[in-house]
């Protein structure tokens, strides 16, 4: 039962992503399930990485890597733009709480806490961006390599 409640947020992330995929005008059950599955998978990775790293920035980074790889693979399989899936699947990792607590500290005039949570929020956003970037750059390299191979073997360009 304890394990169940520990992993319950993955289910919430799944359902929340279904809601958000409607807002970005995604039609078709397959697209929605891929988005929501990506969101839940990302949070699962985040939770599983917790005992190993004890740092939510590293956990976010790993989760972003996995979500990004998932979206790239699914986009290849379904011949769609990667953004379609990445956009929604990343939502659970976005530091919404960070923005709120930063604002809260700023309002109550606690400068030290405010700066700390501001930097932490920016760090989380940066971890997401770097995670997505690494996978996107790798995917780009693979595509370029394949195109290169094709022109070499296809070989008869005028």
């Amino acid at each position: 039962m304890e394990a169940f409640t520990y992993y319950l947020p993955c289910l919430y992330a799944f359902l929340a992503c279904i809601g958000f995929s409607l807002l970005f005008n995604i039609h078709g059950a397959a697209g929605m399930l891929i988005c929501a599955g990506g969101g839940a998978l990302g949070w699962l990775v985040y939770l599983l990485a917790a005992p190993l790293f004890h740092s939510d920035i590293t956990q976010s980074f790993l989760a972003a890597l996995v979500i990004s790889a998932w979206s790239e693979i699914m986009a290849r399989l379904r011949r769609c733009p990667v953004t379609s899936y990445l956009l929604v699947a990343l939502f659970p990792l976005v530091p919404g709480g960070g923005i709120y607590y930063t604002m809260e500290h700023a309002m109550s005039g606690e400068t030290a806490l405010f700066l700390e949570s501001l930097l932490h929020t920016l760090g989380l956003a940066g971890a997401l961006a770097v995670g997505v970037l690494m996978v996107a750059s790798l995917a780009r390299l693979v595509t370029n390599y394949q195109n290169h191979r094709r022109t070499l073997t296809g070989g008869k360009h005028p």
């Binding site: 953004t83 990343l90 976005v94 919404g96 709480g97 809260e104 997401l128 750059s137």
Partner: peptide, 26 residues
């Protein structure tokens, strides 16, 4: 109230905008 507000704010956060911006810069 804080969990309620944070949950609702997720509809407004510029989630992918930041990531896409970094992608364009790279």
């Amino acid at each position: 109230s804080e969990f309620i507000i944070i949950g609702a704010l997720m509809a407004l956060v510029p989630g992918i905008a930041f990531t896409n911006a970094m992608r364009d810069i790279m």
